[in-house]
Design a protein around this nucleic acid. Structure first.
Lengths: 131, 131
DNA sequence: GTAATTGCAAAGCATTTGCAGTAAG
DNA sequence: CTTACTGCAAATGCTTTGCAATTAC
């Protein structure tokens, strides 16, 4: 556990913004000015594999990370890509035992909402490209 | 409506494999050997904007497209990225009227399943990187 | 005829990787 | 000590874009 890794984990757990690797790099550089973006990526990968953080499976051009690994649902802004947590999660029908042809096993499911965040709703809502 | 555009649309509607742009490029080149990858991308973007096809919001390094725009659910193989349709969709609780702090409006929701497809289940399941 | 579209090649980004040096245990 | 990790820079892979030529209507 290097200083870089612990700072990355700590900072990711502090925020609720589901940052991209680059956003996290900016945050972490405030504490470790010489850290490299490659190190941020490598540690994010390590922490995901270790189950300490989650890589969000939502599409878009950049990956986003979540320091909260408890099961919860997300809303994604269709305009800017911002991701927020649902405070009142949707109750899902039971998933276990579900069968899908061509698949050996189903290990989980995600519900994700699409919406338009307040900021994008203001600045006219031109269909800007998601980050 | 150019020949390129109609062939792309036609071929995408023929398959149920949710191809990446590159996979579709390979298919279409069978009919139009001189088509360029850039043209495939530009037409896919056009067709998505026109509501003729859907860009799948699932993660992975490549975008995937669906010729079926009716609402339906997907399963994604965690190993190879393959996407399949759920034949028996999960009934979702009513979504309209849902409120999320910080969001102006919610326009939809997706359920996506994670699993391991038959092929990947066979070839030992080393955590291969998703396409 | 004119506006949209194409093929090609180059550019853009996000992410990954090779390597020599450095730090952790 | 030894192995894992770092910073840096170059490489990769997917997607987008500029441009001159072509096609659709």
């Amino acid at each position: 556990m290097t200083r870089q890794r612990s700072v990355i984990l700590e900072e990711l757990r502090k925020v609720d913004t589901h940052p991209t690797a680059d956003e996290l790099y900016t945050i972490v550089r405030g504490l470790l000015p010489h850290i490299s973006l490659g190190t941020v990526y490598r540690n994010l990968e390590y922490l995901v594999a270790a189950g300490e953080i989650a890589r969000l499976e939502s599409a878009g051009s950049s990956m986003r990370f979540d320091g909260d690994v408890s099961g919860h649902q997300h809303v994604r802004c269709l305009h800017c890509g911002r991701i927020a947590d649902l405070v009142h999660p949707l109750a899902l029908p039971a998933l276990h035992g579900i069968r899908v042809e061509g698949f050996d096993r189903i290990v989980g499911a995600r519900v994700e909402f699409d919406g338009v965040c307040d900021q994008c709703a203001l600045r006219a809502n031109a269909p800007a490209r998601v980050k």
